[in-house]
Simulated assay, not measured.
Amino acid sequence: MAQLLPATQPVRFLTETGTPVADRPAYPEPDQDLLLSAYRKMVVGRRFDTQATALTKQGRLAVYPSSHGQEACQVGAVLALDSGDWLFPTYRESVALVSRGIDPVEVLSLLRGDAHCGYDPGEHHVAPQCTPLATQTLHAAGLAYAERRKGSGRIALAFIGDGATSEGDFHEALNFAAVFRAPVVFLVQNNHYAISVPLSRQSAAPSLAHKGIGYGVPAEQVDGNDPMAVLAVLSAAAAHARAGNGPFLVEAHTYRIDAHTNADDASRYRSTAEVDQWRQRDPIARLEAYLRGRGALTDTVVAEVAAEAEEYAAALRTRMNADPPLTPTDLFDHVYAEPTPQLREQRAGLLEELVEAR
């Protein structure tokens, strides 16, 4: 079994200014192509996030939980997995979903109120975004166990926030996964607030990663704003699970720059100085500085990626400004695989009324 205790300090590869740390962590360094891919996806993801936030102000989205500042965690998780592996997101992982290649309009269907899930989970191997805290951890553990029983070689990764580690479902999922050696990675994005409740009022543990010890789950903590470190640790965690060693718990120390959602006033529970301090640890600027220092990133490439991000946002804006098509019979067509006689009767009745109303 892997060492249960996480490192005493979060694993880091880069300082806040993007220079390599003096003491190299005991993890393989991600290759340059992977880092360039992470940079591109983070830049596009942040522009998507900014555009989605603007759409709430235009009345095109009912609500949007921003992940500004947490891009390294969301993109790093996607890149650490194979395309056949499963993701179990919360409501805040929209950037992870678009980084996975899901149509951004389909990603935002839940937040616009069109449907509980606008994309095909089976096609993308991404579960519906979960609003109740921690319930997706049980789903991830169960599916991962099923994949193990089938011998598919696939694993699952469940996103979770720091506040959700206080929920019973999280602990049940850890226990089940450990006992049945389910190949699942639990990624806790510790952004220091459960909406308005600070971490100090949530847990007295040395770190949230330490919560794995009691269940026999090995864990690690990582600087969640260091894209290199996130990729290295999550890749190791995924390899651990894929090799048949059971679950792995990762705590990523990060920060939510924007409010909890567009309906939240974050100034009521945190200071501008605190937010500004975390802005200096920006994951995109950090990786960009490192790649420029290595000669892997030029002004031309930076401009190309920025232009790609703007084009992506413009296309999303245009599509979201069009009213979605409404089909009344969807009320009945997506309840059961085989509709019941009662549903068929109600559906026929609705169609009859619609014809009479014309």
Rank of each mutant, 00 (worst) to 15 (best):
P6K: 11
T8V: 12
T15D: 12
P20A: 04
P25K: 04
Q32T: 15
L34D: 02
V44N: 00
V44Y: 00
V44I: 15
R47A: 06
R47Q: 14
D49P: 13
A52I: 07
A62L: 13
P65I: 07
S66C: 13
H68V: 13
G69D: 11
V75L: 02
L79N: 01
D85W: 00
L87V: 04
P89R: 04
P89D: 04
T90H: 00
Y91A: 00
G101T: 01
D114V: 13
A127P: 09
T137P: 02
A141I: 08
A177N: 04
R181M: 13
V184W: 02
P198A: 00
A205P: 01
S207H: 07
L208C: 04
L208S: 05
G224H: 10
G224D: 14
P227I: 01
A232F: 10
N245T: 07
H253N: 14
D258L: 14
A263S: 14
E274P: 05
R281S: 04
A285D: 12
L287F: 01
L287S: 00
E288C: 08
V305Y: 08
E308Q: 05
A314D: 14
A315F: 07
L316S: 02
R317C: 11
D330N: 12
A337N: 08
A337W: 09
P339A: 04
Q346A: 15
A348Y: 05
G349K: 13
L350D: 10
